[in-house]
Structures are given as C-alpha cells and as structure tokens.
Design a protein around this nucleic acid. Structure first.
Lengths: 202, 202
DNA sequence: GGAAGCTGTGAATGATGCTTCACTTCTTCC
DNA sequence: GGAAGAAGTGAAGCATCATTCACAGCTTCC
C-alpha cells in the first residue's frame, strides 16, 4: 500500500493551490473575469488546464475563492479601521479613505471586485460582500447617531448609500489611467461620505 | 421588377421591429439579460429566431437597443424633474424620489437596467447612461452651490455618489418581493440624498 | 527495486447559444 | 395570373469554453 500523503506532499499540494489562486487573482486583476478562462489561469500558474480540477471542482469555485480572498482582505481592513480608536465620525472618515486608497492602489483588482462583469457565482459573492460592507458602515452610523455625533437617520440606508456611492465614485478612476488627482479625489470622497451621514462639516 | 416597398409594407416592418423590442424588453425584465436568448426573445415576439436578424445585425445590437430605449425614458423623466420648476434642493429631492418610485414600480426592468449581469455591450451602455445620470445631478448640485442653497463641494463627486447610492439602496428591494415599505424607503432615500448634497435638514 | 496509487497532462468531449442559409411564403407590379 | 424579389423560417453550422479522461510521470513504502 502506497497511498498515504507525506507532510511534504501535502505542503506541495497546498502551495500549488495557493499559487493557483494567487496567479488567478493576478489574471483577473489584469484582464477581468470574462477573459480569465481556465486555460489562461492555468497557463499563468504554469499548470495544465485539467490540473485546475485537482484543486477546485469547477471554474466557478475557483472564481469564488479568488473573490473571497481578495474581498475578505478588504472587509477585514475596513472593519479594523471602523472598529478602531476614535469617535464614530472620525472612524467613518478614515474607513472611507482607507478603502478608497487601497482601491486606487490596486486598480485592476478593485475594479474586478467592485464592478467588472462576472459570472453569476461571482455576482452573488459580490452581493454578499456588499452586505458586509453595509453592515460595517451601518454599525458606525448607528453608533454615531446614538452618541449624538450624527443626526437621526436610517442607518441601513445610509450604509447602503455609502457603499454604492464609494463604488460609483471609484469606477471611473479605476477604469481610466492614473491621473495624479488621487489625493483630491480622496478628500472630496470623504467629505461627501461625511455629509451623507449628516456629520457637521469641519 | 417588383422590389419597391410600399408604405404599408414599411409600416409593417417598423411595427414588427417595435414589437420585437417591446417583447424583448419584457423578457429581459422578467428573466434578466443572461436568460434572454435569441430564441426566447423571438418566441416572445412570435417570430423565428432567424427573423431577429432582419431587424438587428446581432443579438448585442438588439440588447443595446432594448437598454437604450428603457434607460432613455428614465433619463428623460429625471431630466424633466431636475430641470423643472422649484429650487435646486426641491428639484433634487423630487428627482430622487421620482427615479426611485419609477424603479420600484417596474422592478424587473429597473433591476435589469441597474444591476443585472449583462453582456459587455450592455455593460458599456450602462456605464454611458450612468454618466448621463451623473451629469444631470451634477448640474443641479452646481446650481444649488451657486445659489447658496448647498455648501461648497465637488459636484461631480456628489453626483456620482448620488447615482451609486440610489442604485445600491434600490438593489435589494428590487431583487426581493414587494414589501410594502416603499414609502418609508423613499422618504429615507431622499433624506439621505439631501444630506449627501449637504442640504440643511428640514 | 518495484508495485500501488496519486498527481499532472492536454487533446477530445459536450453543452450552450449565436448566426447562417437553403428553402418556403408573402408582396409587388405588369 | 405570374414573374421577380423580399421577408420569414428553423434546423444545421459554428465558435467558445468548461469539463473529462486515458495515459504518462512521480511519490510512497515494503
């Protein structure tokens, strides 16, 4: 009998899978979901198309994994900022700025996560993550309202609006070339977000 | 020689094309772009699949026409409200409300126009129309700033944010079932939009 | 060393759905 | 009525890709 995987072998497989996800993420960031065929992704990872199916049961599963990893990092970062130190308004402002800054620093990926046409499975994942963004924003808004820093409002609506507004504001810059106006954009964007939540203007 | 089209024949062809676009719009509103195959659309219009190509050079061209007609109506309506009588803030408020109300009254179509997965040609059209929405909002915001009704701000950003915010807020209600909370939603949405533009709360 | 079994390969398979085309049906006009 | 030609048909053609599979190459462990 020769069928027990050695730790080294397990590590090799895991590494191969990690590498596949990483390369697939790069491909998606560069050419978008619709152009990221199984063949293209496999080529980028240096394996045969068929080998993808050693790691994932379908292309959709791989795509979902790519999305989750990348979007998960963003949720995590945003959560840390929004749950971090400072008053609700300050945290909201910093959260919006950090989120937008990270997107602008990694345009291709940000565009893929936010807006690029994608297969249904990825679309569903996108929806799910948008809900998570909303939930994070809603929490801070609610806190702000309770503390009196923000006026009474429907926090869910404001949170959804913030999510949509940030995405929409970023779509054009993310699609176009780097234009050097990033800092001005960030300032305008955070100002808008604060107005949106009803924070008194500084 | 028998190849001159009579007026009646021309009318018949035009009517057939109109009918095709109308039925295709219904199909898209019901099942979304991805399920609206040429066969399904042709069936709905009561013609053969091949006949679609008498009117449009490709499926994409038909889809684009469907999108343009439907989205064009919304741009027109929004434009009328935003250019109508009243102060900038009042018009902005009414514009948001009218836009959202129309979407909620025609959910399937609104979802298809705003968010449903679609082929690249439709995606491009969607982007183009979003720019038109933004331009309309930007105009009113600029007017409001000039008249002093709104605080100084980057009108383009606010306009993009309004477009994104409205879309995002509507996506969930449009996807789910009618829940009867439409009026409350509209009130919260317009309140958010006014805050977003910096209008003093009523 | 060598049997057993897992991983990797990439061409073949299969599904989907747009588009074409040979043919039929309808309209025009003498 | 009938010739000429357009519109309409729908099944076949075709392109695109995800997925499979028979086979080759490796790793494990006695």
């Amino acid at each position: 009998m020769a069928y027990r995987k050695t730790p080294a072998e397990i590590r090799r497989l895991t590494t191969a899978k990690e590498r596949l996800v990483a390369r697939a993420t790069e491909v998606v960031a560069e050419v978008g979901w619709s152009q990221a065929s199984v063949t293209a992704v496999a080529d980028a990872a240096g394996i045969a198309a068929g080998s993808v199916y050693q790691h994932f049961p379908s292309k959709a599963a791989l795509a979902v994994e790519v999305f989750r990893r990348a979007a998960g990092r963003e949720v995590e970062v945003l959560g840390e900022v929004l749950h971090g130190p400072g008053g609700p308004v300050e945290r909201l402002s910093r959260g919006v700025e950090v989120f937008a800054r990270r997107a602008l620093e990694n345009r291709g990926l940000a565009y893929a996560l936010l807006a690029a046409p994608a297969e249904p499975a990825v679309g569903a994942e996108r929806l799910a993550f948008r809900r998570r963004y909303r939930a994070l924003f809603a929490e801070v808004v609610r806190e702000g309202v309770e503390s009196g820093a923000l006026p009474a409002q429907n926090g869910e609506i404001t949170a959804a609006a913030l999510t949509g507004a940030i995405g929409e504001v970023l779509v054009d810059p993310l699609g176009g070339p780097e234009d050097g106006a990033a800092e001005a954009l960030l300032a305008d964007l955070t100002a808008m977000a604060l107005r949106c939540a009803g924070a008194p203007t500084a």
